[in-house]
Amino acid sequence: MTDILLQVRQLEVVYHRVATAVQGVSLEVPKGSIVALVGTNGAGKTTTLRAISGFLPSEDAEITDGDITYGDRRINGQLPHQMARAGVILVPERDKVFGTLSVEDNLEFAARGGGEITLERVLGYFPLLTQRKSQLAGYLSGGEKQMLAIGMALLCRPTLLLIDELSLGLAPIVIKDLMALLHRISKELGLTVLLVEQNANAALAIADFGYVMEGGRVVFYGKASELISHPDVREFYLGGAAQSETKSYRDIKQYRRKRRWWG
């Protein structure tokens, strides 16, 4: 059996002491694997990632139940910079680069000396950034920002890389390239990746395992290849129902029946 790097058990997160965003989520991320977390809008994917990478006190979010174990350490309620220093690096959904700093400063911001990930190596993965080195990051395009954000995250020497919506606002062709690149990087550097995606097809294509979330809970999980061919997952979450026939009442009933919460 493979080592488990990150284990989330029965996680419950409450915002502002009133809004429960995630309820009883459990997931496991084996060392060296890529795990995809997919689901509809508002399913609680971002919240799950944020709980792992830590909330600032000002966000008024609280882990009210469950455990998050990283390696052999329970990391509930750690501050973001403590998690970052422990090697858990999040590439957030929005505001992922410092817009008022130059590209170079953004990369330097994160760079911690030592380790095998150097600035040159990162620029090797994202050659585009080299040309834009002295430009303000705020003026980059969405895709360039995403590359910069990943570059920044890599320079923080991650062990576990958490990526929220890699494909947000990117052209399909770019998504495909970026996914392939991510796969390559993670294999070359031996990274473990937990990837949140809207574009489930693209994510499950490079992932080893997948979890499907809905309404703050995990509703399906399994090997990525199994999920991608699972008819229910395909129908409910990947949007590509195999048959194009019009749905009958029977299908809807089936939808009800098949939907269930795990954990």
Partner: peptide, 24 residues
């Protein structure tokens, strides 16, 4: 200086700075 750059980053986005390992 790196601290100075981190300072400017924190001023812009404290959460991201924190997520990049800066003690805000």
């Amino acid at each position: 200086t790196r601290l100075g750059v981190q300072f400017r980053g924190t001023a812009e986005n404290a959460l991201l700075a924190s997520q990049r390992g800066v003690d805000v």
